[in-house]
Design a binder for these strands. Structure first.
Lengths: 116, 116
DNA sequence: CGAACCTTATCACGCTCGTGTCAAGGTTCA
DNA sequence: TGAACCTTGACACGAGCGTGATAAGGTTCG
């Protein structure tokens, strides 16, 4: 078989075996399994684990943040809603008319198409 | 003065006064202050609070998630890094060459330009 | 002035995150 | 066969989240 066991993967990536299971449960890196249920980490998974580690350390980000970003990536409705909310905030209040927010729904669906 | 005090804002938005201070500390809705330091919520803030409440409830999202999305919106470097990581995952492993991830840096800066 | 508000700071509480460790049991392989 | 791995599940624990309550003190306004 071509792949590392969880402990070997832990050793070469700097995560602990415990954390590899945790990362998997968070839905971020899910290795294949042998028929017996053993995790086998291939080159792709190992690389993802290393870059994930960099990402978290370099930007001081939480696993749940990355998981949420993944959700944003797939749930277009959520993505549009969040972005619309944020954009409305970014605008300076002075320039915002009292009914500008009424465009929420239009903006949302417009952005849903343009952003993908 | 044209604006509601924190308790009035709480009453009309469904948040508690306590939570309005908390939301502010999370950097999501920051009302102006009177010279004496009293928070004054204008129409814009009230609407943001209502839509934020909808957002959290409807999508079962945490305040910290929205805060992270805001960070993604402004920190382009973080945004590019996260998106690159996610994209690499989205690709089916079978089609991924062992050195595809080496394009990380190029992808990152390319996306940095294209995504804004 | 005094009631009714506002401010920040603090204690509390249950829940989740990130992490380790340990237990009970299955798998691999020399 | 037996040592060395793997699995899931659990207890633990400090830190932070979401939320309320309460205290000590300043502000507003009839």
């Amino acid at each position: 078989m071509d792949g590392l066991t969880i402990q070997e993967a832990a050793d070469t990536t700097g995560w602990s075996a415990r954390m590899l299971r945790y990362v998997e449960r968070a839905g971020l890196v899910s290795p294949e399994r042998t028929p017996a249920g053993y995790r086998i980490y291939g080159a792709a998974e190992l690389q993802r684990l290393r870059t994930l580690k960099e990402l978290l350390a370099h930007f001081d980000v939480a696993l749940s943040d990355v998981a949420f970003a993944a959700r944003l990536e797939t749930d277009m409705d959520l993505r549009a809603a969040v972005q619309t909310w944020l954009r409305a905030q970014a605008v300076r209040p002075e320039h915002v008319g009292p009914d500008d927010w009424l465009r929420f729904e239009q903006l949302k669906h417009q952005r849903l198409l343009e952003v993908v």
